[in-house]
């Protein structure tokens, strides 16, 4: 199964600058790990040492917050869209 992982600007350097990365996997965790295998800097931004999701990130699967579905075990269907999103602080102060 292939999902599209969307990467916001500030995480793009970790995947070579791409805004979207195709990733194989049947769960959110598998898809994100596939991206991390191809781009090791991404893995260290997204995963804690124990393999859990970093707490500064929200991950949305097809528009819904995965943390409140089944987290990294949330299944992804074919063509699913995953967005990895850190909080942003800028108020343009």
């Amino acid at each position: 199964m292939t999902a599209t992982v969307r990467i916001p600007t500030i995480l793009r350097p970790a995947v070579g600058g791409d805004a979207e990365v195709e990733a194989a996997g049947s769960t959110v965790g598998e898809a994100l790990r596939a991206v991390g295998d191809a781009h090791p800097p991404f893995a260290s931004l997204v995963f804690e040492r124990d393999g859990s999701l970093k707490r500064y990130l929200a991950v949305f699967v097809d528009g819904r917050d995965a943390r409140h579905l089944r987290g990294l075990d949330t299944p992804v269907g074919p063509g699913a869209e995953i967005l990895v999103l850190p909080a942003a602080s800028g108020g343009a102060g």
Binding site: I10, L11, L45, Y56, A87, G90, A92
Partner: peptide, 25 residues
């Protein structure tokens, strides 16, 4: 609440400030 969505802020290296990163007005 905001913490439900983002339990923690990004580590300093990940999230540049607007001054460093810029923003289109």
């Amino acid at each position: 609440c905001y913490r439900c969505v983002f339990p923690e802020p990004p580590p300093p290296g990940v999230s540049p400030s607007c001054a460093e990163a810029g923003v289109l007005g």
